[in-house]
Deep mutational scan, measured.
Amino acid sequence: KRPVSAMFIFSEEKRRQLQEERPELSESELTRLLARMWNDLSEKKKAKYKAREAALKAQSER
């Protein structure tokens, strides 16, 4: 099983909040919005998710 990506971790963290704030969005619209949010995120903020990705990857390799 492959470890999850930093973007996937970000998306899972933000998805529920966005669904509550924007219930009119379809699943595909929500996914596009999350992708745009990820792309607009600064490298400094992405680092938090990339660190979690690395930790999960290291854990799965044990």
Results as ranks from 00 to 15, higher is better:
E12K: 11
L25S: 03
K44R: 07
F10M: 01
E27R: 07
K14Y: 12
A54S: 10
S11Y: 15
A58E: 10
W38D: 02
L33D: 06
S42I: 01
L25A: 08
L30T: 07
R15A: 05
E13Y: 03
E13C: 05
K44S: 14
A35H: 02
A35S: 11
L41D: 01
M37T: 04
W38N: 00
R52C: 08
A58L: 13
A58Q: 14
A35Y: 02
D40L: 08
M37S: 04
L56M: 06
A51E: 13
A54T: 12
F10L: 01
W38E: 01
S42F: 00
Q19P: 00
K14P: 00
S26L: 04
L41I: 07
A54Q: 08
R62L: 09
A35W: 03
A47K: 13
L34H: 00
P23K: 05
A51N: 10
Q17L: 13
R2G: 04
A6M: 02
L25R: 02
L25P: 00
E61D: 10
K45P: 02
F8G: 15
A47N: 03
N39R: 11
R15L: 05
R32V: 07
E13L: 03
Y49K: 00
K44F: 06
Y49T: 00
E27T: 07
S42Y: 01
E61V: 10
N39D: 13
I9R: 05
E53H: 06
V4S: 09
E12P: 01
L25K: 02
R52T: 12
L30N: 03
E61A: 11
S28Q: 10
L30G: 03
A47Q: 14
E20D: 15
E27G: 09
L25I: 07
L56E: 12
R52K: 15
E29G: 05
S28N: 11
R36Q: 09
P3F: 13
K46Y: 01
K44H: 07
L41S: 04
E21I: 08
R36H: 02
Y49D: 01
L56Y: 09
E12R: 08
K57F: 11
S11G: 13
L56T: 15
R36G: 08
E24Q: 06
S28R: 08
E53I: 02
R16W: 08
A55I: 07
Q17V: 14
V4Y: 09
K1M: 14
K44P: 12
E53L: 05
R16A: 13
R52W: 04
L18W: 02
E24H: 10
K1I: 14
A35N: 14
P3E: 11
K45H: 08
S28P: 12
E53R: 02
S60F: 15
K48W: 09
R62P: 04
E61N: 05
S42C: 06
K57M: 09
Y49M: 00
P3N: 15
E20V: 11
L41W: 00
E29A: 07
I9E: 02
E29D: 13
E20G: 11
E53Y: 07
A6T: 02
Q59M: 15
K44N: 01
M37L: 11
E61K: 09
S60M: 08
Q17N: 10
E61Q: 08
R16S: 14
R2I: 06
T31G: 08
E43S: 04
E12V: 06
E61S: 12
A58I: 15
S11V: 15
L18G: 00
D40P: 00
K1E: 07
E43N: 15
E53P: 01
V4M: 13
A58D: 15
L34I: 10
I9V: 07
R16P: 14
E61F: 07
S60D: 07
K44T: 13
A54I: 07
R32D: 11
K45F: 08
E29C: 04
K14G: 04
